[in-house]
Each structure stands twice: as structure tokens, then as C-alpha cells.
């Protein structure tokens, strides 16, 4: 199957996903980048389970070797868990949009409203007694 070829592609895809997460200001696209990162990790595992000349791990009468079923099991469940957690992230994006009116990270960081409900623990004004 051509040496480490698959692993190199896994790294390229993973780094592109990582780049999207770091650079894109849009929260939905960030989640998309995380998904690309995650899917390339899945490809890494499946590549580990491949056996040259093998077949899918379903028992038949032929004498071909079977590819390793263990990575398949781990990744199969990880994909469905991945979509559930992605949906949770998207729900958080929706809540951020309803609270702050934007899903652009730069706008959120610049906007004073983002911080209005949070008290800075290092703020000296908070040191004073508040019971008046």
C-alpha cells in the first residue's frame, strides 16, 4: 500500500484543519476545521488497521486475511460521538449569537458587551467591601 503515504496525507489534512481553527474568525467555520482535524485522525486509525491484500472483517469461507477490526470499532463509535459533540458546539454557537449578536470572533473580542457579565478577578475595585 505504498509505505507511509497515507500517514503523510493524514498530517496534511490535520494541519489544514488546525489552520482553519486558528485563522478563521467565524465560529461555524472553526467547528468545521475541528471536524476536519477529527476526521483525519480517524483516517490515521483506519490506515493502521489495513492489511495488504486483506478484505473487510466479515467472516466468509475464503482464506483471505481480514483487516484489523479493532480500529474500525473504535472509530465507528467515535464518528457518532463526534457528530453529537459537534452539534453541542453548534448549539453553543447559537447561544453565543443570541446573547452577543455575532458569531465573528474578532467582533466578539472587540465588543464591550461580551465582558459586561463577567467580573475581572484582578480588578482592584472588587477588593473593597460591597455591603453598604
Amino acid at each position: 500500500m505504498g509505505g507511509l503515504f497515507n500517514y503523510w496525507f493524514v498530517i496534511v489534512l490535520m494541519m489544514l484543519g488546525f489552520y482553519i481553527v486558528m485563522v478563521s474568525p467565524n465560529l461555524v467555520k472553526k467547528i468545521m476545521g475541528l471536524n476536519i482535524f477529527q476526521t483525519s485522525a480517524f483516517l490515521l486509525y483506519i490506515s493502521v488497521g489495513k492489511i495488504s491484500g486483506g478484505t473487510a472483517p466479515i467472516l466468509t469461507d475464503t482464506t483471505m486475511p481480514y483487516s484489523n477490526p479493532l480500529p474500525h470499532v473504535l472509530i465507528l463509535t467515535a464518528i457518532v460521538v463526534g457528530v453529537a459533540t459537534t452539534a453541542l458546539g453548534l448549539a453553543l454557537v447559537v447561544r453565543i449569537h443570541s446573547s452577543f449578536g455575532s458569531i465573528n470572533e474578532d467582533e466578539l473580542l472587540d465588543d464591550e458587551d461580551t465582558y459586561r457579565d463577567f467580573e475581572d478577578p484582578l480588578d482592584p475595585a472588587l477588593e473593597e467591601p460591597t455591603d453598604r
Binding site: N6, T39, F42, I46, S47, G49, K50, I51, G54, T55, A56, P57, I58, Y66, S67, P71, H72, I75, L76, I79, V80, G82, V83
Partner: peptide, 13 residues
């Protein structure tokens, strides 16, 4: 890569 179950899940999910 012979992972038919995984492909099934990835395509639908």
C-alpha cells in the same frame, strides 16, 4: 481501506 462499517457511518453522519 476495508473499513466498510466505518464508511457507512461516515457517509450517513
Amino acid at each position: 481501506l476495508d473499513a466498510v462499517d466505518v464508511a457507512f457511518t461516515e457517509a450517513s453522519v
